[in-house]
Design a protein around this nucleic acid. Structure first.
Length: 479
RNA sequence: CCGGGAUUAGCGCAGUUGGUAGCGCGGGUGGUUUGGGACCAUCAGGCCGGGCGUUCGAGUCGCCCAUCUCGGACCA
């Protein structure tokens, strides 16, 4: 156990108070900084580096599937925002408005973009005329502003970084295929980079995006069994294109409206990453997204040859593409151990005089704490295998948490009992009505997370109205 | 937006009946150390969250505001 070490004590234990633990990790791992404006956060270098890695992974996938990056304006004139009725109703309560330009009052107030559907549509109305102009496969990396009442690091910022993809297609089939493809890209990021298992599904009508015909989602389970939406992908039909008067001449020389999609993933996923994998010693990062994948710590570094050996070791790891850091600061070894555990570095490699003598080093993995002795002769192979093993183990542990805390229920009472107990996902049959969905929230305190793609096809009863239903829905408590 | 708690040095806190501020850690420097949060010496660091009031005098009392935090409501 830790002795009189205040840094360890300063972190609330995860199982004592999960939300407080979460805040502590964000601050102590140097991911986030507070500012003088409520809900506005600094992403510190270490936190931003995680986002950069997510960006890099996603951007490559977007481009590989034909998407192009663009940059849209920060401001949306009120009249433009109002063109689509459901959209403005959904977003109006959380818009920030600019009303002055210098000392002059503006003729029309400007909304700081909460999302950019209206801007993309307005632009497309100008440039899309022929079927030859389609599809448009656009994405932008930017920040958006939503004037939230309560804020929390990563999970709910008033300004947050994200990417928003917006695409326009000639046919509904093509647009739906795009929507599903992008959801799968998010699922791939979560599972293969972030080591977060997800459930793919559709949002109910009640939970879908303002103005969307259909919203797809990936749902993740946090360590405390609450749900977090990892990313969403929307199919709009031609509602927005009609409202914004986007029309093109098709191959039959008919003037028709195209079909639209949008999809987004934000820095909120970093909050999900923390809450999925973190432990009592702080952050635990999966190797593929970790800013530092391996930290090399020279032991007794003042002794002849130790620093050189550490640097040579790091050079070898760097040469094989590992993001590596040598910490040759004059902190004690114990301090460094704790520090890099707090920051979630997946692997720590120690090298000291005894190792040098035996042509070895010691590798300590963050996910299990396990230490192994590695021969320097097989360094590259061993580290590569460890990285993959850490990823796989982290994924497996998260998946086990999700599976162990996913239940089936037939009555509202059962749902409530599960949720009031240790929480988790609860599967029930559902008739599909918003009335029953609202009733479930009122009586059991849960919201629908999604209607999963994978259905058992069996028939049961809707726990609210008792109707025979084949559709399975997943309920949970969301962040 | 509603309710609870908080705001004094970088961090964590103390500060009595109102009399212009202290401790620990951290930081700098010099030295000894280094395989799980080292040690000695020394130095620096504060408009007591902001405003208004009461008072000869406010960290301390009153009112207002801001921010953080934990619940709840809301959340495309």
């Amino acid at each position: 156990m830790a002795k009189d070490s205040r840094q360890v004590d300063a972190i609330t234990r995860r199982d004592t108070d999960f939300t407080q633990w979460y805040t502590d990790v964000c601050v102590k791992a140097e991911l986030i900084g507070y500012t003088t404006v409520k809900g506005m956060f600094v992403l510190r270098p270490y936190g931003y580096a995680i986002w950069e890695n997510i960006q890099k992974e996603l951007d490559g996938r977007f481009k590989a599937t034909g998407h192009e990056n663009v940059s849209m304006p920060l401001f949306i004139p009120e009249s433009l925002l109002q063109k689509e009725k459901d959209h403005i109703e959904g977003f109006a309560p959380e818009c920030a408005w600019v009303t002055m330009g210098g000392n002059e009052k503006l003729e029309e107030r400007l909304c700081v973009r909460p999302t950019s559907e209206t801007l993309f549509c307005s632009h497309w109305a100008d440039v899309v005329h022929s079927w030859r102009d389609l599809p448009k496969l656009y994405n932008q990396w930017c920040s958006v502003v939503r004037w939230e009442k309560t804020s929390r690091p990563f999970l709910r910022h008033r300004e947050f970084l994200w990417q928003e993809g917006h695409t326009l297609h000639a046919t509904p089939e093509e647009a739906i295929a795009e929507t599903e493809q992008q959801l799968e890209t998010y699922a791939d990021l979560c599972e293969n980079v972030l080591a977060m298992p997800v459930i793919r599904g559709c949002k109910t009508d009640k939970e879908k995006f303002a103005g969307a015909e259909r919203t797809y989602t990936i749902e993740c389970m946090m360590h405390d069994h609450t749900a977090l939406q990892g990313g969403t992908s929307h199919y709009f039909g031609n509602g927005f294109p009609t409202a914004f008067d986007i029309a093109f001449s098709d191959k039959n020389n008919q003037l028709v409206h195209p079909y639209e999609t949008s999809w987004g993933l934000s820095t909120r996923i970093i909050g999900g990453l923390i809450m999925t994998h973190g432990d009592d010693n702080g952050l635990v990062l999966p190797p593929r997204v970790a800013p530092i994948q391996t930290v090399v710590l020279p032991i007794a570094q003042h002794k002849e040859g130790v620093l050189d050996a550490a640097r040579a070791l790091a050079d070898r790891l760097g040469a094989m593409g590992i993001r590596v850091k040598v910490d040759d600061s004059d902190q004690s070894a114990g301090w460094k151990f704790a520090q890099y555990e707090m920051k979630g570095v997946p692997l720590r490699v120690e090298i000291g005089p005894r190792d040098i003598e035996k042509n070895e080093c010691v590798a300590a993995r963050r996910d299990t704490g396990e230490k192994t002795v590695i021969s320097l002769d097989t360094l590259e192979d061993s580290i590569r295998a460890l990285m993959d093993d850490i990823h796989n183990n982290m994924y497996a542990m998260a998946k086990k948490n999700m599976e162990d805390n996913t239940f089936e229920a037939e009555t509202v009472e059962e749902v409530k009992k599960i949720v009031d107990g240790k929480g988790g996902f609860v599967k029930t049959k559902w008739c599909g009505s918003t009335e029953c969905e609202n009733a479930m929230k009122e009586r059991a305190g849960v919201t629908s997370r999604c209607v999963p793609f994978v259905q058992d096809g069996k028939t049961g009863v809707c726990p609210i109205c008792g109707k025979q239903s084949v559709k399975t829905v997943i309920w949970g408590v969301a962040y």
